[in-house]
Amino acid sequence: MPYKKTMPSENVLAVILMGVFAALLGILLLGVSAFLGRVKRNPEKLSVYECGVDPTGSARERFSLKFYLIAIFFLVFDIEIIFLYPWALIFRKNLERGGLILFEMMCFLAILVVGYLYIWKKGGLDWK
């Protein structure tokens, strides 16, 4: 396979360069707009946008607990899935050594699915 491996440092440099390029571009565009844009301030324009009505109350209101719940589920499931990645990477190369690698991960997946079904049964995934 004609495939040249590059050093990690070059990759890091490339990604950083690209990020810097994007950042400079963004800053440049914002700067141009701030410099050339019309400036005519008035208190109405600088107030909170609430469809033209005078703003009522603070924006730092309490919000639905469901968002918090989703965040916790995300943490659990995302980490479980990250655990699956190394397994998936070596799966094919280790197949000739027998089905142990399959069995092990099936146990892991089964435990994960039990937890998932428990959350489902408890109504954690319903959005009412």
Partner: peptide, 12 residues
Amino acid sequence: KFIFKEDPIPCH
């Protein structure tokens, strides 16, 4: 138009 629009940073 994007460039020449006023770009206010609201007070809040």
